[in-house]
Structures are given as structure tokens and as C-alpha cells.
């Protein structure tokens, strides 16, 4: 797909992030999401994917983290100065890892909480109907406490809640986590539908097959650094990706450590 002409909606440039002043979680990471794109962000546990999302959405400080260098620009504004509330108002919504729905509130209340920053009641009501149309299952369970829903339904609540903010950019942190393969397919189709209405998506995933199958471009983050980037198709075809994320390498059971070593070697080679 050639969408390169679209203007960028999110530009992350050379961001370095630390936790508790000492733990370096991002070592100069750059990434770009253009209007209308689905961009996949891949990487193993502890690679820094969630940290990058927090840096973008302004939630890093909640975790005692801090950006030491670099910039994040969202729709032309300096996202590092916006803070979480204005970031949402500017059009960025986040589905956090582990769903983080309000378990004791009803599905209806969860969805409405997503529109907290909006004041146009008619537009919110229209979006509410749209979300229920997208997730018919939630319409049936509107009055039940969200915590009683199945894992897949809870993920739908989390995504629906984010959509209620009418986002230009949707950040999704591992939406497939802990879900059955069939539900993962549903979630994937929903992401495609959402993207079809013009919302850009930054998709963090460990399920690389799912993520790359619907992404125009992808990035691979390891140990706080970007080690690979390319179109979705390129990454899907990439032998390293196949070997270490899709489990279909030549040897069939190469270790994850091996991948890291190889990237490390590549980095030091390019640095010197």
C-alpha cells in the first residue's frame, strides 16, 4: 500500500525515557504514524512498547517515568506538554494493556466515561450508537457490571470506551492478550473497521501475525531501541520476524536470546 503521501499525525523523535531517574526504558526511539494508517509496534516483553505508549499519551509520570530527550508531536502539538487530559481532547485515545475497564461500573457507564472530555451531547450520543452498532454484544449487556463480562467482551468495552473520545489516533496495547484465537480474529476485524472510518491506529502487539496482517507499516522494538522497520508485508516476509515472532523459522526453534544477540551485534557494528 502506498500511503506515504499522507501527512503524519504522530511523530515520535529520538525519545529517551527513564523510570525512577535511572532505569533507561527507551534509548532514542523514533516512530511515525500517518493519517489513516495502521502501524504495528512489535517486540518482546520488556522491550519498551508500553513505555513508548505512555510517553505518547502522557501517562509516563504516573509510573514515575520521565522523558529525558526527544520530542513527541501529535497533530502539530507538543504532546509532552499536553498532559493526559488535553491529549485526549486533542484526539488521542488509549486502550491500556490488560483492558483496565471500570469493573464495578456498568458497560453503559464505562462507555460514557470515555466521552468525559467532550461537551457536544448530540455528537456523543451519535458516537454511543455507533459503538453499540460496532459491538452488538455490548448493547445486550449495557446494564451489567463490566467486570462480569467475558475477556473478549471486556476488550470490546475498552475499545468502545476509547472510541467514545472520538479519537483521530487510537493507541491499542496488546488487544489480543489472553483472548481465544477466534476472539482475536474478531478484534482484528474491528480494528480494520475502525481504521476504515478514518481513525489512525498504533497497534502494540506480541501477536505479530495478527498485527502485521492489518498494518501498513510496522516497527520492531528491542531493549528500548528500534531495530527494524518496514511495510507490513516486508516485515511479514522478513526471516528474523518469521523466526522469532511467528515461530516459523528455518530451524523452527531458535531462542529469543539469539535474536537479541544478533541485533546487539548489528547495533554495535553500525555504531562504530
Amino acid at each position: 500500500m502506498t500511503r506515504g503521501v499522507e501527512s503524519p499525525i504522530l511523530v515520535v523523535s529520538d525519545v529517551e525515557a527513564v523510570y525512577a531517574d535511572v532505569i533507561l526504558a527507551l534509548r532514542g526511539v523514533s516512530l511515525e504514524v500517518r493519517e489513516g494508517e495502521v502501524v504495528a509496534l512489535l517486540g518482546g516483553n520488556g522491550a519498551g512498547k508500553t513505555t513508548l505508549l505512555r510517553a505518547v499519551s502522557g501517562l509516563l509520570r504516573v509510573h514515575g517515568g520521565q522523558i529525558r530527550r526527544g520530542s513527541v508531536t501529535f497533530v502539530g502539538q507538543d504532546a509532552l506538554k499536553l498532559g493526559p487530559v488535553k491529549t485526549v481532547q486533542a484526539g488521542m485515545a488509549q486502550v491500556m494493556e490488560g483492558r483496565r475497564i471500570f469493573a464495578e461500573l456498568t458497560v453503559d457507564e464505562n462507555l460514557r466515561s470515555g466521552a468525559f472530555t467532550r461537551h457536544d451531547k448530540q455528537a456523543v450520543a451519535a458516537d454511543y450508537e455507533r459503538v453499540l452498532a460496532l459491538f452488538p454484544r455490548l448493547a445486550e449487556r449495557r446494564r451489567s457490571a463490566a467486570g462480569y463480562l467475558s475477556g473478549g467482551e471486556q476488550q470490546m468495552v475498552a475499545i468502545g470506551r476509547a472510541l467514545m473520545a472520538a479519537p483521530k489516533l487510537l493507541l491499542l496495547d496488546e488487544p489480543s492478550l489472553g483472548l481465544a484465537p477466534r476472539v482475536v480474529e474478531q478484534i482484528r476485524d474491528i480494528i480494520v473497521t475502525i481504521n476504515g472510518t478514518g481513525t489512525s491506529v498504533l497497534l502494540v502487539e506480541q501477536n505479530a501475525t495478527m498485527a502485521l496482517s492489518i498494518s501498513q507499516r510496522g516497527y520492531v522494538l528491542e531493549n528500548g531501541s528500534m531495530v527494524k522497520t518496514g511495510s507490513g508485508a516486508e516485515l511479514l516476509a522478513d526471516s528474523d520476524i518469521q523466526e522469532f515472532y511467528l515461530g516459523a523459522g528455518e530451524t523452527g526453534r531458535a531462542s529469543f536470546r539469539g535474536l537479541k544477540d544478533r541485533y546487539r551485534a548489528a547495533r554495535s557494528a553500525s555504531a562504530s
Partner: peptide, 12 residues
């Protein structure tokens, strides 16, 4: 219920 999730919805 969840302060961080509330923040993520833009709740001050």
C-alpha cells in the same frame, strides 16, 4: 476504581 484508567479517559 482506577486512577490511571480514569486519567487515560481524560478525567482530571
Amino acid at each position: 476504581i482506577d486512577q490511571e484508567a480514569a486519567l487515560a479517559q481524560g478525567i482530571s
